[in-house]
Simulated scan of single mutants.
Amino acid sequence: MGLTRIGGWRNEVVFVLTGLDIHPKAALVRDQMEAALTASAKARPAEVRWTLARTDHPDADTEEAASALLRLTVRDPDPEKIGRAVSGAAVELALAGYPGFHVTAPPGKGSPYGVFEAAYVPVADVPHTAVLPDGTSTPIPAPLTTTPLAPVPEPPLPPPLPPGRPTRRAPLGLVAGARSGDKGGAANVGVWARSDDAWRWLVHTLTPDRFRALLPETEDLPVTRHTLPALRALNFVVDGLLGEGVAAQARFDPQAKAVGEWLRSRHLDIPEKLL
């Protein structure tokens, strides 16, 4: 069953860093905000997270293209700790911060966020009712016996491609498709090949360790791989990538919708025959 609850309060400030010295500017505003947030240990939010998106380009012909985004996200059960205490500290940096200081939107009071969790309950505890076309309802009794959950054995793998073939550094997406999404706090990433030879290469190349190496945001998280040979496909489950679920907005892509496309954009040594 699915469980939903209010997880706490959340606020966000996005600082715009333009032009040269992006990393020093980010370090300065981070140091200033951290000092403000830790002025009182009791006032510091329970969770403080920084992410820097290098959307800037050198010698850009528009100001937006010359800018990077530094995102501060805070969470706490107490709305006071993520409200004015955070927004006030950010606004007060306007004349004392890095050159070109501005934010994408005025900081606000914050907002509540939800948490989605999955849990198991006895099947008999959940009423099962069939509603018929004439509008009548018929209760369906729970089964007296069910099959216990057990690990599914891995299917046999095809032989790998013969070694020694020439390879080329290229994006994985040239030989594989992908689709990704969310299941509570976990991300699912499905990857499939278009031919039998590409499948033989994919299944022996894209291991959980290689997956973590290609997507460093997953390197400290549990990654489970499921093999689906009849579909020439792999499914990866990354537990914890989405924190406490979509509504908690723990990352830039809270539903993991684009994780598959990120994976396809990563470069590997791919046999030229497949390209």
Rank of each mutant, 00 (worst) to 15 (best):
D31N: 15
R44N: 02
G164V: 05
H128C: 04
D78H: 10
G245A: 13
K25W: 03
L52T: 02
A248E: 13
E80Q: 11
R210D: 00
L215H: 00
E217Y: 02
P79H: 03
L234D: 01
D196G: 09
D197P: 06
L161C: 10
E154K: 05
L157T: 02
W262Q: 11
P143N: 05
R5Q: 08
N11V: 08
L72G: 10
G184M: 09
R251A: 11
I82P: 01
Q249W: 01
T147R: 09
G240A: 14
S111M: 13
D134P: 12
A96L: 08
R210E: 12
T104V: 10
G135P: 03
D125Q: 04
L206N: 07
T138Q: 14
I140P: 02
R84K: 15
G185A: 05
G185F: 00
T146W: 09
D220N: 13
T146F: 06
D61E: 14
L161Q: 10
P171L: 06
P158Y: 05
L215D: 00
G7V: 12
P77G: 15
H267N: 11
A130C: 03
T73I: 14
P77D: 14
R264M: 10
A233P: 00
A66S: 15
W50I: 11
T147E: 10
T146V: 14
T129W: 04
I22K: 02
I270A: 08
A41G: 08
L206C: 12
L214G: 05
T218E: 01
H267T: 14
L274M: 03
G181N: 06
V238F: 00
L268P: 01
D196W: 06
V13A: 11
R71T: 15
L95K: 07
S87C: 03
A247Y: 10
A89Q: 01
L132W: 03
L161T: 13
L228S: 07
R212I: 03
G83E: 02
L172H: 05
D269E: 15
I270Y: 04
M1P: 01
F211Y: 15
P166N: 12
D78E: 15
T167N: 04
G164T: 04
W9M: 06
A39C: 12
P254G: 06
L72R: 09
L231S: 06
A119P: 07
Q249D: 13
V16C: 07
F211V: 13
P158C: 09
T146H: 05
V29W: 00
A85Q: 05
P171A: 06
L132S: 04
A230E: 12
R232E: 13
V103P: 04
P153M: 00
D134F: 14
P141C: 06
A130Q: 04
V121C: 04
T138Y: 07
H267C: 09
P122A: 14
E47R: 15
V16P: 01
Q32H: 07
R49Q: 12
G164K: 01
S265Y: 01
D78R: 09
P208V: 10
G245Q: 10
L157F: 05
